[in-house]
Amino acid sequence: MAQTLEGRKVAILAADGVERVELEEPRGALLGAGADTELLSLHGGDIQARQMDLDAAGTFSVDKLVSDASVDDYDALLMPGGTMNPDQLRTSADAVAFVKAFAEADKPMATICHGPWTMAEADVLRGRRITSYPSIRTDLRNAGADVVDEEVVVDGKLISSRSPADLPAFCATVVDRFAL
């Protein structure tokens, strides 16, 4: 039976350099399941998307600044990757505080590729089982995570995947777990 996310609001936290497909496909799956999504970022207007980190891939309109967002307004959090996106987010006190507050509220969070970098900065990975893009696994281990190489990892309310190749399984798991 298909999961429904009717009445659920999902925050998507992203900045310039977000990997387009890692925002677009999960957001489409969430919308298709009936969720409302809101794109949060560090600045207003549009954020620049990338394809394979190298090529410009259009823009996404920002709905709200993360500095103006409250965890209480959302049921779940999605953090796409790309190298530049989370590298910017993890240097933003507002973004790091938002992620930390989300973890402390014990709400569902999903991340893919380099997305967990912001979670490492928020110090919310200690003792958690997670996967990511191979190049940041040492950073995640140093942040106290149990890092594995699997398509999708679910640790309580934390969902993670490695790369765009995992998007079909990631999207299905995100919809399923965000519906709980």
Rank of each mutant, 00 (worst) to 15 (best):
Asp155Thr: 05
Trp117Arg: 15
Thr138Ile: 11
Val154Glu: 14
Thr83Val: 13
Gln51Cys: 00
Lys100His: 11
Met119Pro: 10
Phe102Glu: 07
Gly58Asp: 04
Ala15Gly: 05
Ser41Asn: 10
Arg162His: 04
Gly81Ile: 08
Leu158Cys: 05
Leu77Cys: 07
Thr118Ser: 09
Ala49Tyr: 00
Thr173Ser: 11
Gln3Ala: 15
Pro86Lys: 13
Val18Tyr: 10
Leu23Arg: 12
Tyr133Arg: 01
Asp176Cys: 00
Glu22Asp: 12
Asn85Gly: 04
Arg128Ala: 13
Pro168Ile: 05
Ala110His: 07
Arg8Thr: 13
Asp149Ser: 15
Ile112Phe: 03
Ala57Phe: 01
Asp106Ser: 14
Tyr74Met: 02
Ala49Val: 03
Arg128His: 11
Leu54Ala: 07
Thr37Asp: 09
Pro134Trp: 05
Ala122Asp: 02
Ala103Lys: 07
Asp36Leu: 06
Glu38His: 10
Glu150Thr: 03
Trp117Phe: 00
Lys107Asp: 04
Arg126Thr: 14
Phe102Ala: 14
Gly58Met: 04
Cys113Ala: 11
Gly45Tyr: 00
Ser132Leu: 05
Leu78Asp: 01
Ser61Pro: 10
Gly17Arg: 10
Asp166Met: 01
Val153Gln: 00
Val66Glu: 08
Gly82Pro: 11
Pro26Ile: 07
Glu38Phe: 03
Glu24Ile: 03
Met119Gly: 09
Phe60Pro: 05
Gly82Leu: 09
Val148Trp: 04
Phe98Trp: 04
Tyr133His: 13
Glu19Arg: 07
Leu180Lys: 15
Ser67Gly: 11
Pro168Asp: 02
Ser41Thr: 06
Pro134Arg: 09
Gly115His: 12
Pro164Gln: 09
Leu77Ala: 03
Val71Asn: 07
Ile47Val: 15
Thr59Lys: 15
Pro134Gly: 05
Val21Met: 14
Gly28Pro: 01
Arg141Ala: 14
Val99His: 13
Ala122Asn: 09
Ile12Met: 07
Ala69Thr: 03
His43Leu: 04
Asp16Leu: 09
Ile47Tyr: 03
Ser163Val: 02
Asp73Gly: 03
Ala110Phe: 01
Asp166Lys: 02
Thr138Ala: 15
Tyr74Ile: 08
Asp16Gln: 07
Ser92Pro: 03
Gly82Thr: 02
Ser41Leu: 08
His114Asn: 12
Val154Tyr: 01
Ser163Cys: 15
Arg126His: 10
Ala35Asn: 11
Pro26Asn: 04
Arg50Ser: 08
Ala14Thr: 12
Gly17Tyr: 04
Val148Ser: 01
Pro86Ser: 12
Leu167Gly: 01
Met52Asn: 15
Ala35Phe: 11
Leu180Tyr: 01
Asp106Cys: 05
Arg8Cys: 03
Phe178Gln: 06
Phe170Pro: 04
Ala93Cys: 00
Ser70Gln: 13
Met1Cys: 06
Arg177Lys: 15
Ala143Met: 05
Pro168Tyr: 07
Phe170Ile: 04
Leu89Ile: 05
Glu121Gln: 15
Met1His: 10
Lys157Glu: 12
